[in-house]
Amino acid sequence: MLDKIMREIENSKGPLTTRELAKRLDIEESALEGMLEFLERKGRLSVYRPGEDCEECGLVSCASCVYRAACPRSEEGGDS
């Protein structure tokens, strides 16, 4: 199962969402999450979970959480 995940990701021509990957492998998305966490811990791949580090900022996406925590924020930092 873990090999299938790695193969599917490596053979994919573009980026993959966990949802798309779960569909392709015909497994439950939450089960896939568990497997991805394991593979991530092993350093085989990485998973981006928007907002996982900045729950307190309340944004849906961490991607553009420009001035907020972790999405690290720095008071001394101004605009460049």
Partner: peptide, 20 residues
């Protein structure tokens, strides 16, 4: 792929984007 995320953040300000 994650690299684009701090780059998107750079549209706001490069300082936290570099830290991200």
């Amino acid at each position: 792929g994650k690299s684009f995320i701090p780059m998107v953040m750079g549209f706001g300000c490069n300082v936290p984007a570099v830290m991200a």
